[in-house]
């Protein structure tokens, strides 16, 4: 087990290195010059050249990348070109909001997805099952922007139950978490349904029924814990999906997370911020996957890590 974790950690570091390299290359070949963005439209050629050399952007690609990595090892993500603030400071100021939203959203999607998936399995083949599966299909394919605005309009503007965007209280959290939750629940309900169906067909369920346990107890105490396993494993992978969804949802609800930061930085070609956010997202995905693999044997002793 420790050897496995060590190997996975080394793999993760390599993946992050690869991600940083690819992102750096893409930003390097981007036909937009960050120096001109900084220097402004009244700048002379000398000013542009001077800023370029101060930022080290006149150096060959490999030197620029090497410098970036070296600073990164020392925990220095650089300074934003346009805000002049430490990228680390910007990320730290925004990570709590994103993490909070992510936890709340995962809670929502599990609650909605698992419940609906279970109900669908129990009513297999009946109209309710079909309706729920159709619903899950819609939720998976619905555009985030539209769902977010729809919820905002109905529950915040028309009904006034929640604030119209923003951050700070529990009430602010509900709508963005629900948006991500509804959109993500579709996957979970489908997986939960098929997993539940498999378990319900298993011998030990028949045994439990045969020894006289009532249906509710069989489902909740015997079937559910077993059916839930493959779903839990998905959560780690799901973190990656979240990173993309969060950009849109954070923008609509004015949620001050890193998705919003990324979007603004991309529009302004603020390369240090784009690099920083990309690395943080990549870390989240790598850690998510690692956790999913590490948790699996804990909840199912039949799985062994080698």
């Amino acid at each position: 087990m420790p050897a496995y974790i060590l190997r996975r950690l080394i793999q993760s570091a390599l993946i992050l290195l690869g991600v940083s390299f690819i992102t750096f290359v893409l930003l390097y070949i981007l036909p937009a010059d960050p120096v001109r963005q900084i220097a402004g439209r009244s700048a002379t050629a000398e000013t542009v050249a001077s800023i370029r050399s101060q930022l080290g952007l006149d150096k060959p690609f490999i030197v620029q990348y090497g410098t970036y990595l070296w600073n990164l090892l020392g925990g220095d993500l650089g300074r934003s070109y346009l805000q002049k603030t430490e990228v680390g400071t910007l990320l730290v100021s925004r990570l709590p909001a994103t993490l909070l939203l992510m936890v709340a959203a995962i809670f929502c999607e599990l609650l909605i997805g698992l419940t609906l998936g279970m109900i669908a399995a129990l009513y297999r083949g009946r109209p309710l099952d079909n309706a729920l599966m159709l619903g899950s299909f819609v939720s998976v394919s619905a555009p985030q922007f539209v769902v977010a605005l729809l919820l905002l309009y109905v529950f915040a503007v028309k009904l006034g139950w929640f604030p119209i965007g923003g951050y700070g209280t529990f009430a602010h959290l509900v709508l963005p978490a629900l948006t991500l939750g509804i959109l993500g629940s579709g996957w979970y309900s489908r997986i939960m349904r098929s997993s539940m169906l498999d378990v319900l067909r298993a011998d030990f369920i028949r045994t439990a029924r045969a020894k006289g346990l009532n249906r509710t107890r069989v489902i909740l105490a015997h079937a559910l814990p077993n059916a839930i396993l493959p779903v839990i494993a998905m959560v780690g992978i799901d973190i990656g999906m979240f990173m993309s969804g969060i950009v849109v949802v954070e923008s609509v609800f004015g949620w001050p997370g890193i998705g919003q930061l990324a979007w603004q930085a991309i529009q302004r070609v603020d390369i240090p911020i784009i690099m920083g956010v990309t690395l943080v997202s990549a870390c989240a995905i790598v850690i998510g996957n690692l956790l999913a693999d590490l948790i699996a044997p804990l909840i199912d002793p039949r799985i062994r890590l080698r």
Binding site: Y153, V157, I164, G165, Y167, E250, S251, G254, W255, P256
Partner: peptide, 13 residues
């Protein structure tokens, strides 16, 4: 100055 507000959301507000 409240930032992070989509123009369309700002209009609703």
């Amino acid at each position: 100055v409240e930032v992070g507000q989509e123009p369309i959301v700002a209009l609703l507000r």
